[in-house]
Amino acid sequence: MTARDRILAAIRAARPAPLPPAEAIAAEAAALLDAPESVRPRPVEAVLAAEFVRKASALGTSFDHLPDRAAIPLAVNRYLDTHGLPPALALQPAPALAALDWTGIDTHDAVAPDQTAALGLALWGIAETGSLVIHSGADAPILLSFLPLHHIVVLEERSLLPHLEDYAARMAGQPQPRNAILITGPSGTTDIEGSYVRGAHGPGFLHVLMIGG
């Protein structure tokens, strides 16, 4: 008897009645997600973007609002300049970013272990929590979001979702990426005496370039 057999047999032995059909279990599981508004926080702001900014700012995320993608390089330059950083950037190898005019900034695909700044794209933003969603992929290395000290993220305002369940619904039944990550503020720790310190292992700074409206 394998460990698998032993575990499953012990579970079945502990149950007084036989297992209901899979459809009945699925219906019961679905009912546990009914009336989501009764078990989740209500937004304070009526406008999704305002709620997202409110939530994310509270956690230390900074913002720049841009009219369109063409404005990204200038905004990045401004950010690097404000923080006294060299004009160098690890760029997510996505066509949408490569297509922009990066004159004056030294961009590269590879992210260095001591990378100062990196720029990537968020797939969605979640207003309830102020989270950015990224997925791993051929043009989306995960380390780009974790190695740099300054993580700059492009988010389209039209990609905002109200609640965590709305993201789960988008992904239900879809092919799953290796990693799906909800990034909520810069990296931090309270492991020494409960004191909050930013930039534990991941980025110490999270800056969102919010496009359009």
Partner: peptide
């Protein structure tokens, strides 16, 4: 919300 909430689904595609 935790800063990083990550779903790990299988190895590298």
């Amino acid at each position: 919300m935790t800063q990083y909430t990550t779903l790990h689904c299988g190895p590298k595609r």
